[in-house]
Computed example of a mutant assay.
Amino acid sequence: MTPTIAIVAARIFDGTEWHEDSGLLLEQGCVHGIVKTSDIPRGVRRVDYDRQQVVPGFIDLQVNGGGGVRFGEETSAQAIREIASAHARFGTTKLLPTLITDTPDVTALALEAGRQARAANVPGFLGLHLEGPHLSLERKGAHNPSYIRPMTAADMDAICAYRGDAGLVLTTVAPENVTAEQVRALVAAGVVVSIGHSNATAQTARSYFDAGASMVTHLFNAMSPLGNREPGIVGAALDDGRVFAGLIADGVHVDPATIRVSLRSKAPPGDIFLVTDAMQTIGTDLAGFELNGRAIYRNEGTLKLSDGTLAGADIDMISSVRFAHQVLGLPLERVLAMASSVPAKAVGLDDRYGYLRPGYAADFAVLNRELECVHTWVEGREPSSL
């Protein structure tokens, strides 16, 4: 088929290498190819981003809210649309709306909202992340302890049913409230299982990785730490090449030195990817909000309960990219991968997302020299149509 749009930029990162003075060819919402500007076919409409750079769209696997909307407080396809739209302003082209620990009724509403969002083809919607309620009380963080409970057969049936008829679902669980047998059943049904909000030992974590858990949720936060005699979940995840790990790069949740050490020590092919863990403050001037009846205070890039407990994050993905590149000193190419191809691989979707290759979704962000997001395209849709 013939390409219909050429995105022209000073340089284009395809997820592996840079292309200078080139055009990204789009056709029916997918990437057709990348060619030199002089080789763009005649008759193709050109969109010029002079002196700017095009990179694969960001994929955020942990997004609690945005644009004033928190998923769970509002559970509808429209709520998901508003959250995705808010994050698209910051280069995120695919995300998992994340439901934190709540009641069975709210969880059911969230699963139905995901079904409706998929049926409506909401731009940016990739699937759902259920972060709880099957977590550890000891490592609950800001999750409401009254809602934390063991996983039941009914819980498993609901998650597996969603996976069967609506697609990708990621669930964060703790060994304290979910058995290894339950993890095996979830993974067999195609559910991505992540270990988090847990005080499990490294040995226990390894047994859950053996059962099929392939990820840990916000590395270092709300989990047993790396110690000299007990490696904890942190040590087990860094040491196991089967495991991917999300990480909040805001300089608040994890110290920069700790992040650099973890990146150097992570066993491949599993890798560390960026998540925002963003709340509804993104894209707004909200001074705070309520979470399950508790006040959350926004102050200088942090969101906290009155006792100082962190309650999600107040950062978008392009800000995370800048932090990782400018503060951590990581090569831009690696940081871009941490925000796109690595999370895509973590959930088994790197055959269609995370790169700008022929046949892949035309998901990309346009960045200026200061690494600010100028425009975001989702599946070939121009920014004005999102």
Results as ranks from 00 to 15, higher is better:
290 E>R: 13
217 T>H: 07
171 T>I: 14
380 G>L: 03
321 V>Y: 01
88 A>H: 00
26 L>F: 10
380 G>W: 07
131 E>A: 06
226 L>Y: 06
124 G>A: 09
259 I>T: 06
272 I>C: 06
54 V>R: 04
79 A>N: 02
176 E>N: 13
282 I>G: 02
60 D>W: 10
310 L>N: 10
376 T>I: 02
224 S>E: 09
386 L>Y: 00
29 G>M: 11
45 R>V: 15
166 A>W: 11
267 A>Q: 15
201 T>N: 08
341 S>A: 15
292 N>E: 13
179 T>D: 07
44 V>I: 13
231 P>H: 01
258 T>W: 05
149 R>Q: 02
233 I>V: 14
78 Q>R: 15
129 H>W: 12
127 G>K: 02
313 A>Q: 12
216 V>C: 09
97 P>A: 04
367 L>W: 04
56 P>F: 12
165 D>F: 08
112 E>A: 15
150 P>V: 01
372 E>H: 15
5 I>N: 01
233 I>E: 14
129 H>Y: 07
324 A>G: 11
203 Q>G: 11
386 L>G: 00
169 V>Q: 08
351 D>R: 09
269 P>T: 11
223 M>N: 15
41 P>Y: 05
50 D>K: 11
374 V>Q: 08
174 A>M: 00
177 N>I: 00
232 G>A: 08
114 G>A: 04
45 R>S: 14
1 M>A: 14
66 G>Q: 03
232 G>K: 02
65 G>Y: 06
16 T>K: 12
309 T>R: 05
295 A>I: 07
383 P>S: 04
220 F>K: 07
7 I>G: 06
280 Q>T: 00
46 R>L: 12
239 D>H: 07
222 A>M: 15
42 R>P: 10
78 Q>W: 03
59 I>M: 07
272 I>W: 05
5 I>A: 03
3 P>H: 07
313 A>D: 14
337 A>E: 14
71 F>T: 00
